[in-house]
Amino acid sequence: MDAESLPAPLKSAVEGFERYLHGERARSAHTVRAYLADVHSLLGFAVQEGIRDLDQLELGSLRRWLGAQSEAGMARSTLARRAATARAFTKWALREELIATDPAIRLQAPKRVKSLPGVLQQQQVLRVVDSLDAAAADGGPLALRDRAMVELLYATGVRVGELAGLDIDDMDQDRRTLRVIGKGNKERTVPFGVPAALAIDDWLRRGRPALVTATSGPALFLGVRGNRVDPRQVRAVVAVLLQALGDTAATGPHTLRHSAATHLLDGGADLRAVQEILGHSSLATTQIYTHVSVDRLRKSYQQAHPRA
């Protein structure tokens, strides 16, 4: 059920929640869309049960909503996310006095199964970079842009949305640092190395001027029409490069973020330094990369040691 089909009180609540997410919580457009999709799913299910006002929502309806999705084969990670969204929505509704009690306070969902992120080996990263260098040798603006974007993704571990949002002034090329606006509008400074600096300089001198238009503004990376590059374009570029490797199932720009974090830790970087570079609010989130490194160490040991 779409938003327009909801009863007026429920539709009004969704609109208020959306304003809250954009305003007070400063969530990204992508995150807001995900939250609203979950809320629409919940309220659509509630309407089918005869609910027309938010104050009629009960714990039983929330549990049946999750149960129906579980029976339909929805992944446990998605169920956990939807339960979290429901709790955030009803907590907000209680604060706004749209409901008298919070029905989701005891709502639980299957625990997420933590999986290790896809990580490239360092030799695989070098092969990706070599292919980008070969393409950029012809000097085409998009080839120069793609090389600079991938070098920066791997050098800094920034998220694809953070990369797309970069402006030229966010870079300090002398110090080789990047000012990044992350989740929750939190700002952090991230260093990058010489290869990324050279690729970006090449893009700024020979690539960007060929694409820039009157509407480009200060955007660091541009699309073919001169507008700020879209995150979907970045994902498509990386997906093609990883597919061309032929020996990895990893896909998407997050693979480069995972790889950057793992290779930093493999090289002896401090865990809290990696946390700061990645912009993780919790050290526990960063610690998953230590598991990746230990797993790789264990495999190497088992392959090499005669009495493993």
Rank of each mutant, 00 (worst) to 15 (best):
Q123W: 02
A104I: 14
R208T: 07
A143V: 06
T255N: 11
P110F: 14
I288L: 06
R87S: 12
T101Q: 12
E15K: 13
A135H: 13
D38W: 01
D38N: 10
G23F: 14
F17H: 12
P218K: 00
Q56Y: 03
E96F: 06
T85P: 03
R159M: 04
F221L: 14
A210S: 04
G16M: 07
L242G: 10
V47T: 08
E15T: 01
L271D: 00
Y20S: 00
L21S: 02
T156P: 05
Q275S: 01
L241C: 09
S41G: 15
S259H: 02
T156D: 07
S115L: 14
L57P: 05
T213R: 12
L152P: 00
I277H: 03
H30K: 15
L256W: 08
A80V: 03
E18W: 08
Y289K: 11
A8M: 04
Y301F: 15
L242D: 10
L36V: 13
D38H: 03
A304L: 12
D201M: 02
H30W: 15
V119R: 07
L163A: 12
A214E: 15
L59I: 14
V180Y: 01
S300P: 10
Q233E: 13
R188E: 11
R159G: 06
W65I: 13
A86R: 03
R87P: 10
V158E: 01
A72I: 04
T286V: 02
A250N: 08
G140S: 15
F192T: 08
W65L: 08
W92N: 03
K186W: 05
T255V: 09
A68Y: 04
A239E: 15
K186P: 11
A84L: 09
L62W: 14
L21P: 09
D102L: 06
T248E: 07
T251A: 15
V229P: 05
G139M: 00
R296N: 12
R64C: 06
G279L: 03
A68T: 12
R63W: 15
A13G: 04
D2F: 05
L256C: 05
Y289M: 00
A219E: 02
I105Y: 13
A210L: 06
V14G: 01
T215V: 13
R76A: 09
E49S: 11
A210T: 00
K11N: 07
R257M: 05
N185H: 08
T251I: 15
V238E: 09
R298K: 14
A239W: 11
K183F: 04
R106Q: 14
V238H: 05
L43R: 11
L57M: 11
L265Y: 10
R19V: 00
T255C: 04
Y154P: 10
F89C: 07
P231A: 06
V237F: 10
L297Y: 13
R81Q: 03
E162N: 06
K186A: 08
Y301E: 12
L163H: 08
G157H: 02
G60F: 13
R208C: 04
L211G: 12
H305S: 11
R298M: 12
V47Y: 05
Y20N: 10
T78K: 09
